[in-house]
Simulated scan of single mutants.
Amino acid sequence: MNIDWVTMVGTVGATASVASFTPQAWKIIRERSTEGLSLAMFALTCLAFAAWTTFGVMKGEWTLIVPNAICLVFALFIFGMIALPARKTEEIAETLDPES
């Protein structure tokens, strides 16, 4: 059996990138707060994922497009939740998870 190490490393990296945003997004929803998060950092993160997604589209590489597009969605969600007034952040979080 021949293992494609490049694909394996890329898959691990893509999976880790996508998974890394899930806990932060869920914490915002659960705690109804973005206190302590940097708007500038998430703006740069959104720019980076948008650039990587665009690069993937330009090269026609689905292995770049899919994980970076998913990460972009998570980063945009977090960026939006930080940018919104606290009252609106709480309303959205309540809509997404009314039990918390």
Rank of each mutant, 00 (worst) to 15 (best):
M1Y: 13
M1L: 10
N2E: 15
I3A: 06
I3W: 10
I3H: 03
W5R: 11
V9A: 12
V9I: 15
V9P: 01
V9R: 03
V9Q: 00
T11E: 08
S20N: 13
S20A: 14
F21P: 08
F21M: 07
Q24W: 02
I28T: 13
I29T: 15
I29K: 14
R30G: 06
R30F: 10
E31M: 09
E31G: 10
R32L: 12
R32D: 10
S33Y: 09
S33K: 11
E35T: 13
G36F: 11
L37A: 11
S38R: 05
S38G: 01
A43Q: 09
A43N: 08
L44H: 10
T45R: 00
L47N: 07
A50C: 11
A51T: 14
A51L: 15
F55I: 03
G60W: 00
G60F: 06
G60M: 01
E61C: 03
I65K: 00
I65S: 09
V66I: 15
V66N: 04
A69M: 00
A69T: 06
C71P: 05
L72V: 05
F74K: 06
A75E: 00
F77E: 00
G80S: 05
G80T: 09
G80E: 07
G80I: 01
I82K: 01
A83V: 02
L84R: 06
L84H: 04
P85F: 05
P85L: 03
A86G: 05
A86H: 09
K88I: 13
T89V: 01
T89W: 03
E90K: 13
E90R: 14
E91M: 04
E91W: 04
I92N: 02
T95R: 14
T95W: 12
L96M: 10
D97F: 10
E99I: 13
